[in-house]
Design a protein around this nucleic acid. Structure first.
Lengths: 203, 203
DNA sequence: CAATGTTTTAAACAGTTGATTAATTTTTTG
DNA sequence: CAAAAAATTAATCAACTGTTTAAAACATTG
């Protein structure tokens, strides 16, 4: 995905610049001239390749949306036990958001501010439904604590994504150093995994 | 705070309208004309009372920031055990964000997008430091599982705030009905409290 | 090489933005 | 009530916005 090499292909170069700027400043905070400058091209070219700022944004958002669901897609419906699956899901999400620290804020903000632009973000992904069923099944079998499956999804998403959302406020509250923070994040992944597993399986 | 009665005081009416619009659409997505319309006044009046959009925004953000910390301020340094304090903190935060569903997204987004405008959001609040010390003390005394205090703060914030941040995506993933969702949120508060308490105290 | 198609550019357009102005209405006060 | 002060308005400003245009530069090909 995000290679450091600048692509010679102009269309791709615009798309990458747009992704970078949109992710950082959001749809409202981004101007076509911002994107053009980031891509090192003339303003008119963004409209030459993508017909409008809106269409370009739609494309970027849908890519990001896909990236978010694609990461866990296969894992969610893999035929393994929850005891294996949940720690792997957490690890996989931590990896995704560590690689892409703005992704969570971007998806949440734009979904909230511009729901009309987001055709993709409508139907429930089948892989998620599969996972929810698996949780329900585990509850029925008495393997895990009896909870509505949505809670498990909520727990995983919250405890992974919020780490990246709250980075600035955690810096303020704890006066932590940047190097120590990286260590903190990695420790938190372990802690969250352990906490959720204990909660679900030891009851 | 947010009375439903429209205040006759013009300054207050502008401020309330600004708060509403800024919270919903963010700094970049808001125009001075949006605010004027929401307040039912002429555009020029926003600059008559507050000298610029930026100054008005600063005021709104700082209010929101204060509101966020004020809610827990007293509770954080109350001389009670963590066994009592943590569930109360979670309950207090749930109450705050339920009353103000956009607060979390607003604070996180604007802090990320416009750090230069936010003078307030710099120093660590003493009440938070008090709480972190109390956690450290409890660890030393062997009362709770040995964890770095920042993790506890992170757990509480994540598991409360993300519920409100993820409302749209949870609707997508679970096809839940609006009435069922309210029940889900209330259940999740219980679940999260229980999970964190078990994790910290049973080890 | 000339003709043709593609990519890129500078310039411009109409609409919107935050902000100011100068005039008008409303309120206060001596 | 009249004069002064304060609040409110419509009109306007320059800067910026997304988008389009028409011309230039570049590449392709017969």
């Amino acid at each position: 995905m995000s290679e450091d090499t600048v692509p010679q292909n102009t269309e791709e170069r615009i798309k990458e610049a747009a992704r970078k700027v949109f992710m950082e400043k959001g749809f409202d905070g981004t101007t076509t001239r911002d994107i053009a400058e980031a891509a090192g091209i003339n303003v008119a070219l963004t409209n030459y390749y993508f017909r409008s700022k809106e269409k370009l944004f739609r494309m970027i958002f849908e890519d990001a949306h896909r990236e978010f669901f694609h990461e866990s897609h296969e894992l969610l419906q893999r035929p393994i036990s929850l005891r294996e699956k949940i720690p792997q899901l957490i690890a996989s999400d931590f990896r995704l958001f560590a690689k892409n620290p703005n992704l969570s804020l971007f998806l949440i903000t734009e979904r909230h501010r511009h729901p009309e632009l987001l055709a993709t973000a409508k139907e429930a992904p089948p892989a998620v439904l599969f996972f929810l069923n698996q949780v329900q099944e585990a509850v029925t079998q008495g393997e895990i604590r009896p909870v509505a499956p949505a809670h498990v999804l909520q727990l995983i998403m919250a405890n992974v994504q919020f780490v990246f959302l709250s980075k600035p406020i955690m810096f303020q509250c704890t006066n932590i150093s940047p190097t120590a923070y990286a260590e903190f994040v990695s420790q938190h992944q372990q802690l969250v995994t352990q906490m959720i597993m204990i909660y679900l399986f030891d009851f």
